[in-house]
Design a protein around this nucleic acid. Sequence first.
DNA 1: GCCAACGTTGGC
DNA 2: GCCAACGTTGGC
Length: 152
Amino acid sequence: MAYWLMKSEPDEVSIDDALAAPNQTVPWFGVRNYQARNFMRDGMQVGDGVLFYHSSCPEPGIAGLAEVASAAYPDDTQFDPNSHYYDAKSKREEPRWLMVDVKAVRKTRLLSLAQLRTIPELDDMVVLQKGSRLSITPVTPAQWKTLQALLK
DNA sequence: GCCAACGTTGGC
DNA sequence: GCCAACGTTGGC
């Protein structure tokens, strides 16, 4: 069992959108970073815990809890010339980009980035490191436990 | 809108 | 393989 933080722009897919989706599950399309892809491909397992993070919005922070609901599989948007996520260099026989399904568990109070930075136990969280931009980052069991207590 | 930080591309 | 130039992310 592993834990992850996954960023989503609420204008695109918010925790409310995910909760309203069929089976509270959304495909996590649009990841175009190799490190993040590799986390999905090599690190994630069905049932892993997910912190649903809202980014690029007025108040960025953790907005909900979710879980990994599928293994990694090809992200079809890479083959769609009309998609913002189209990648002309990716071939169907050898898809470059993958996604997983994410099932929303519940909405939480918004634990803002500013608040997260004040919690000493979370100092080492990857997402809080200077210059961190990765849209998917690992979370340690200790960090997860701390956050669960805060988000009860 | 600004800009720091990081990732990717491509010439050499 | 180096590295400059460019593109993107994302907080502010």
